[in-house]
Design a protein around this nucleic acid. Structure first.
Lengths: 151, 151
DNA sequence: ACCTTTACTTGCATTTTGCAAGTGCAAACA
DNA sequence: TGTTTGCACTTGCAAAATGCAAGTAAAGGT
C-alpha cells in the first residue's frame, strides 16, 4: 500500500499543478464523470463505460481517488459482495472543471457528443445551474451540507 | 511525423473524454498556464518553470499542442534563432478549465499557492472577469476577434 | 457442498515519461 | 571569414505508467 508521499514530493506548489497531479491523468476525471452523471456506483458498472478502462487501472484509480479524498467506498448494504463508490464534497467540487472541459470540446470538436445532456449551461445561468446540480449530487452521494442549519 | 489518427481512433466520442485525450496529460495544461499567465513565449523560457519539464517532453508537447491547434509557433522577428509560441483561440478557450482547477486546489489543498493572482474570481463577477481576461489574451497572442467589426 | 457473482490481483507486453548528453543552426564576435 | 555562443531541439537508454488476458478470493444463493 502506498503512502501519501505526494503531499510532500510535488513538482511545485502551484495550485494548477497540484490539481493536475491529483486528477490530471487520463482516467480519474472519467470515473468522476460517471459518478456525477450516471447512477453507476459499483466496480463492475464503472468498468462498463464506453472507454473500456482496464480492470487493474480502474482498481488503482479507485484506490488513489479514495486516498485523496475524492470518493468514498462502502459496502452495499443489500449485497455484501458489492462495493459502492460515492463522491465526497471534494469530488463533487470538480463538477465545474468537468463541465468546462465538456463545453470546450463541444465548441472545438465537431465529433464531441455531449454526455450529461441533463445539465445545460449558459453564461447567465451558470452559477445557479452548477449550484443546483452540486446540491443534487450532495444529496445523492450523502454529503452533509454545513449550510443546512442556516437555511 | 505523426498524423492525426486521434481524430478517428478515440476511446469514445464523449466530449469530456475528447477534452481529456487532448489536454489530459500532466504537462499540456501547465504549458498553457505559462502562456496565459506569464510572458514566457520561447522554448527556453517555458523550460524554466518550477515544474522542470524534461526537454524532450516539452518538445513533444509543443508539437502536439500545435498539431491540435491550441498554440501557434512563430520565429522571433527580432532574433532569428528564437521561436515564439502563442496561444490560439482554441487554447485561450481553456482558460475557464484552468481557473476552475486552480480554485479547486486552493479550496482543498492548504499548500496550494495561487499562481495567476492577477485574476480573482467570485461567483458573481466570473463571466465578466473571464471574458475580460480572455479578451486581453487574444490581444497579447494576436487572435483576431470576429466580433470586432460589429462593435 | 457447489456454483455464481463481484471485486479485484498477477504477470507480462507496450507505451509514455524522465534524465543526461549530444547535435544543428543562426547570430554575434574577432 | 572563421569561430564562438545562445537557443532549440534530438538521441539513447532507464524507469514508470498503461494495457491485456488470465487467475484468485470471498460472499450469497441453491
Amino acid at each position: 500500500m502506498k503512502n501519501n508521499n505526494e503531499d510532500i514530493c510535488r513538482r511545485s506548489q502551484c495550485a494548477i499543478n497540484i490539481a493536475l497531479e491529483t486528477v490530471g491523468d487520463k482516467w480519474s476525471l472519467l470515473i468522476l464523470r460517471d459518478l456525477m452523471f450516471t447512477d453507476k456506483r459499483s466496480y463492475g458498472e464503472l468498468q462498463s463505460s464506453d472507454e473500456k478502462i482496464a480492470t487493474n487501472i480502474l482498481a488503482s484509480r479507485l484506490l488513489s481517488l479514495e486516498a485523496k479524498g475524492l470518493i468514498r467506498k462502502t459496502t452495499d448494504p443489500e449485497n455484501g459482495r458489492r462495493s459502492l463508490y460515492y463522491l465526497t464534497e471534494k469530488g463533487i467540487d470538480l463538477l465545474p472543471v468537468i463541465i468546462d472541459l465538456r463545453q470546450w470540446a463541444e465548441k472545438h470538436d465537431p465529433h464531441a457528443e455531449g454526455c450529461a445532456q441533463a445539465i445545460k449551461i449558459t453564461e447567465k445561468n451558470r452559477a445557479e445551474v452548477l449550484c443546483g446540480f452540486m446540491k443534487k449530487l450532495k444529496g445523492v452521494h450523502g454529503v452533509k451540507e454545513l449550510s443546512a442549519k442556516t437555511k
